[in-house]
């Protein structure tokens, strides 16, 4: 059961985890929730994305994880738009018969989302000014460790 959502509104990780726990045969659930951190006094983060491409790319990453690990369930939620400090940006949840596939697939998914999903972050300051976040070579290296 693969569920991929790209949305502006928030989400409830508890409800997402409960859905994964309810899958028949599930013995291990892993999850990752990313939140907006108050780096350098930013007041919000704006996430730009390429709507025509985003869902297809996120689904492609999800399909790769599903092909590689014996997953019973996989949930990815990625938000876009303007998010205040402390708000949730991204959720990855995986369910499997045991811990190893769930944990590994979860780490794989969040690493690959960072380098494959067409999102761009802009740090917004209290005065309305902002700066685009630069991609880090470390993110490419982190994703490449799975190949």
């Amino acid at each position: 059961m693969i569920r991929v959502t790209v949305q502006a509104q928030g989400f409830d990780p508890a409800a997402e985890l409960a859905a994964l726990e309810g899958l028949a045969g599930a013995g291990g659930i892993a999850s990752f929730t990313g939140i907006v951190r108050a780096d350098g006094g930013i007041s919000a983060l704006h996430l730009d994305h390429y709507p025509a491409m985003t869902l297809a790319q996120v689904e492609k990453v999800a399909a790769q994880a599903a092909a590689r690990w014996p997953l019973l369930g996989l949930t990815i939620i990625h938000r876009f738009g303007t998010l205040a400090v402390g708000e949730r940006i991204v959720f990855v949840g995986t369910a499997s018969v045991g811990r190893t596939p769930a944990l590994e697939a979860c780490a794989f998914l969040i690493d690959w989302l960072k380098v494959a999903a067409p999102f761009w972050k802009r740090e917004v300051h209290a005065d309305g000014s902002g700066d685009w976040v630069e991609a880090k070579a470390a993110d490419d290296a982190q994703a490449a460790r799975w190949s």
Binding site: I35, L47, H49, W120, V133
Partner: peptide, 13 residues
Amino acid sequence: ELAIFPPVTGGDT
């Protein structure tokens, strides 16, 4: 359609 953009920066902070 051709899209031009900087390297992507999605995911967590």
